[in-house]
Amino acid sequence: MKPVYWMLLAHGELPSDYKSRAREVRLEILRYARKTGSLEELIDNRLDDLPEELQRIVRGLLEQATPMALLWSELREQGAKVISVHDLAYPERLKKSLKGSTPPILYVLGEENVLQAKRSISIIGSRNALPEAKKIARHAGEYFGREDYVVVTGMARGVDQEAVKGALQVGGKVVGVLPFGILSRKDLIPLIREYHEDIFGGRLTLISDLFPKASWKAQYAMARNRLVVGLSEAVLVVQSGLKESLGKDNKKHQSGTWNAVEQAHRMGKRVYVVDLPLEGNRSLIKQGLGIPLPIQDEGPRFSVVEDQMGMEHFQLQQRQSQDKAGMPEANLKGFQPPLFERELPPQSPTSSDKHKRHPNPSKTFASTPSDEATAKKSRKKAKKKSE
């Protein structure tokens, strides 16, 4: 792999008359690269196979190779890696989730193998979370980290950071999707200071698809939601505001959590919402955008989420076994669309149970050992049967 070629494809400046359709042009070059076997083969040996218009564009990108090579050198010095969409290390779940919108490259700081984890869940919520929501987020991170799920977050303050700390505290693994470039010093340094042992110890992996030196912007914070959700099997919402609210500048602002939920539905992901007595959470549940996760004496029953996800895995394995045996083709809408194939309609989440809410969600949540042990035994039995 030649990282500089991929960085040029992702971030190189196009002629001004192509800027309005920059994404389409880059995807078209990538399609030709797939036909020839690789981007490197296309640029080094098969450039004349491109239409004349694309040849001009690629040659223009190659003129920017020197500054991009210096940037690649800086990335290597900082221990960051570049993974192209053609690499085996590129997360398969992300390709299936985003289809034609898959980023051509990811910048990775930390252990890259975690991106291929079979079990992962996004834990998301408000930056300005209430104390009880923070407790639930940390408890969720602990629970799923202990159960060998990779916890995926956007690394924002509030719910995100509490989920990260909870997972790391129990020896779990975390993927943090950054809303800035992986070489943006003013944005990255505070995270490195706080989490350097976890990053270099293989427990926390930071990723970004942005230009390496891009600084934080509100639009990047919203755009990273597609990666947070796309890397996960399911999404857990701890606290959300309403879809739109009036900011201090008297302008309407869209909730980032709400945006992530909408993206999850477009990808066919299951969404769970902690049933706190909050306007945003209740609105998501009322509109059918999330399966309510009730609060009981010991807090939310996260085992319910795991059991439902485990059942989906078991059903998928059964369908795949039937396919191999020559049985009628299984319907795998949410699992099979590869890169650049047409988009399939999202699956709507279903809720089979309606539970009673605990009247006092602000209490400290502690796990109940007997309940969790019973649930764990049940899951182990189901796993043995599926094997």
Rank of each mutant, 00 (worst) to 15 (best):
K135S: 07
G141L: 05
Y143M: 06
N331Y: 11
G110D: 04
E74K: 12
A140M: 00
P277G: 03
E52G: 09
V170Q: 01
P179W: 10
K324M: 12
A260G: 07
L54M: 04
S38C: 00
S120H: 00
P51N: 08
L47P: 00
S255I: 07
K135T: 12
T153K: 10
L70D: 14
P345F: 01
F314W: 12
K383N: 08
S370Q: 12
V305H: 02
E53H: 01
R342K: 13
G268F: 01
H265N: 13
S351I: 06
K165R: 15
S348C: 06
S386L: 08
V273M: 06
E262Q: 12
E329D: 02
Q263K: 11
N225D: 13
N128L: 14
V175Y: 05
Y32I: 06
L206K: 07
F180G: 08
G12Y: 03
W216M: 08
T36Q: 05
S184Y: 10
K35L: 13
A69L: 13
S215Y: 10
K118I: 03
V114T: 08
L316W: 05
R282Y: 08
A218G: 14
G125A: 07
L94T: 04
R21T: 10
S378A: 09
L14A: 11
L106H: 00
A167N: 05
V273Y: 05
L42G: 01
H139Q: 14
Q161N: 11
D209P: 11
D187C: 10
R127F: 06
L71R: 00
E112L: 03
R379S: 08
Q347V: 08
E306Q: 14
A218E: 09
P131I: 09
